[in-house]
């Protein structure tokens, strides 16, 4: 329960931190997508309901604070969470390079959907101006995800004595009895 109480606050903290960091390091030109990394983390490590809640809240907060069309990032994050969650059922996520690769793909997908949305709805062609930025952003997200997962794994280790994620996970995110 405490998770659901703290989740909105954490979502706000993370998104504000993301905006601040982007402003400090890249003058707002590049987004440090901590919220996306958190969604990917949820996809790999949290159970389904908690992950859905996190993705929704993170997306909604980002929509509200970033000035994007309300609902857009909520939808993106939901889709990304589902994608990562289903991927995590198929592959083991212990290796950091897998996480980095998945993060890179997710970030690129998010950018692609964003470009498509703007092209279809607003008839804006973002590919010319934004493409290098989006690629850079995907790489940055990939690197960030490694750090984020490492820190979270250390935190989990300190808290539970072991990480939540195991080689084989179930729908509820728990440990499979077979493993």
């Amino acid at each position: 329960m405490i998770y659901y109480i703290l989740l909105p606050l954490n979502a706000i903290l993370l998104v504000v931190l993301q905006i601040t960091l982007s402003d400090i390091f890249f003058s707002g030109r590049l987004t440090v997508e901590l919220s996306l990394v958190a969604v990917i983390y949820a996809g790999f490590r949290l159970d389904f309901v908690k992950g859905i809640a996190l993705a929704c809240l993170m997306g909604l907060t980002f929509d509200c604070l970033s000035g994007a069309v309300p609902g857009s990032f909520t939808l993106f994050y939901l889709l990304i969470f589902l994608l990562v969650f289903f991927v995590s059922l198929r592959i083991t996520s212990g290796k950091l390079y897998i996480i980095a690769f998945v993060s890179l793909v997710c970030s690129l997908l998010e950018s692609l959907v964003l470009v498509l949305l703007y092209a279809l709805v607003f008839q804006y062609d973002l590919t010319g101006d934004m493409l290098p930025v989006l690629v850079l952003q995907a790489l940055l997200t990939s690197v960030l995800s490694i750090g984020f997962f490492y820190v979270m794994s250390r935190t989990e280790g300190l808290r539970y004595g072991k990480t939540i994620q195991t080689p084989q996970r179930t729908w509820t995110g728990g440990v499979s009895p077979k493993t």
Partner: peptide, 9 residues
């Protein structure tokens, strides 16, 4: 989420 997005669009 789609309804929210569509509505806002």
């Amino acid at each position: 989420a789609l309804i929210l997005l569509s509505y806002n669009l």
